[in-house]
Amino acid sequence: MLDDRARMEAAKKEKVEQILAEFQLQEEDLKKVMRRMQKEMDRGLRLETHEEASVKMLPTYVRSTPEGSEVGDFLSLDLGGTNFRVMLVKVGEGEEGQWSVKTKHQMYSIPEDAMTGTAEMLFDYISECISDFLDKHQMKHKKLPLGFTFSFPVRHEDIDKGILLNWTKGFKASGAEGNNVVGLLRDAIKRRGDFEMDVVAMVNDTVATMISCYYEDHQCEVGMIVGTGCNACYMEEMQNVELVEGDEGRMCVNTEWGAFGDSGELDEFLLEYDRLVDESSANPGQQLYEKLIGGKYMGELVRLVLLRLVDENLLFHGEASEQLRTRGAFETRFVSQVESDTGDRKQIYNILSTLGLRPSTTDCDIVRRACESVSTRAAHMCSAGLAGVINRMRESRSEDVMRITVGVDGSVYKLHPSFKERFHASVRRLTPSCEITFIESEEGSGRGAALVSAVACKKACMLGQ
């Protein structure tokens, strides 16, 4: 009897593995994704193909990295998701002549009506938060230079001027797309009239992360975010950046690689679950690469896999709870928690219980395998993109072996128990001629924006502006 049951459990697990095998990517698959990513990057950089390229390769006008001589107080704003952060950054000489960066910050959550109302409502709310922060720190009387981390696709015309191309991540505030974001912020500050600010720089969160990590390690020339969304930036040779005049030196390019796949480059790798996630998203047909990796989508992918296993009578005796059938019910943090389970399955059992399920031991094991399959594919897909960037940098610099540091931020990278190990191992397999160091950014977005502002202020002083 026991043997029969054991055989049935083994057969069930084997069927589960057959279904989950769809998520496995072979090294040849990853090399294919990497080569296609490089081709799209090239198209994004070139003037004649930029418009139709899915990977936009947006110039950021960040050319210099901090040298350690900029000092002063800077205000930093960070808008990239449902939370908005205001930070005071003091850049100065530390002990023994070292450079020191001290920060104080406060988080504000953005109400739904500000995210989806008008641009005026959104930026009025942001300036209200700045006003509140300055009151708390008794700094209303000071006109501070301000660095703005704005983590949406922007076409820069200068370091302090950028046109919002399109909202992502659930934002829909009308009247912002096609307009200068810094102008919208300046107008809102003017409307309030109770404080003055000098907006000197606007950067993407990947750029802010790279600059913040450069402060720790001067070989950091790539910034990457794996959180709600997924994106990367890197220092490109100016001669390859056709959208900006000049051939000397390097400029940081914001790849906006989340949109890779929007022209069909990933079609052969998309599964039924991916198509369902895409169809029910706020932007169907867009940001397809990001939807395979980002935390906004990972939990939902797992939920759809679990429903398939229920329908195949391989999980929960073929019956799903009402909660499990509800879109968004299986949160991405559950994926991390399930994979963090120590082996007694308590954590998995508790999560499934909150979803109205009474799982068996085998159910718990199957749910864990589903989570591992989805998150491992995410790590491997992400590795193909980064390997594409790094191999490109090595080739354009004609280096036999390139040493490089990548600064990384984002909740999936930082909080998932195995993502970074799987990701690092896969990147290294795909970049055999590179020695890569990964560092995690601390308060990256805010500190990085302030350091970019410090560079901009120093330049302005040198130019006598």
Rank of each mutant, 00 (worst) to 15 (best):
D113S: 09
G444W: 08
R429N: 15
G264W: 06
L75G: 01
M381I: 12
L463F: 12
L144I: 13
M210W: 00
I439V: 06
R447W: 11
A370L: 05
R186L: 04
G193I: 09
G97V: 07
E9W: 10
K39I: 14
E157N: 14
R369K: 01
K32C: 02
K102H: 03
M8S: 14
E237H: 02
K140M: 10
S453N: 14
D158L: 15
Y125I: 14
F316I: 11
G162I: 11
N283D: 13
I390C: 08
E300R: 02
I159H: 06
T431M: 03
K172W: 06
Y214F: 05
E120I: 14
G410Y: 06
Q38E: 01
F330Y: 06
A384C: 13
Y108G: 03
E14D: 12
T118R: 11
Y273I: 14
R429F: 12
S418W: 15
W99C: 06
L75Y: 00
A259R: 10
D262K: 11
D78W: 06
D217V: 02
R325Q: 12
D135N: 14
R394P: 01
S100Q: 09
V338A: 01
S396L: 12
S426E: 08
L164R: 14
L415W: 05
N179H: 09
W257G: 01
L315N: 02
H380L: 12
F148Q: 07
T437I: 00
V367R: 00
E319L: 15
D113V: 08
V253L: 08
Q106V: 11
R85D: 11
T65N: 10
V203E: 00
A449Y: 06
M37T: 01
A450N: 11
T60R: 00
L430M: 06
D198A: 02
G92M: 06
D363G: 02
F152W: 11
D29V: 03
I110F: 14
Q323N: 15
G223A: 11
M107I: 10
R403Y: 08
R327P: 14
R191A: 07
G249Y: 03
V367H: 00
T228A: 04
L301Y: 12
G223T: 03
R345K: 05
N166P: 15
E157R: 12
T149Q: 08
I189K: 08
H380C: 08
R403W: 04
L352H: 02
A259M: 08
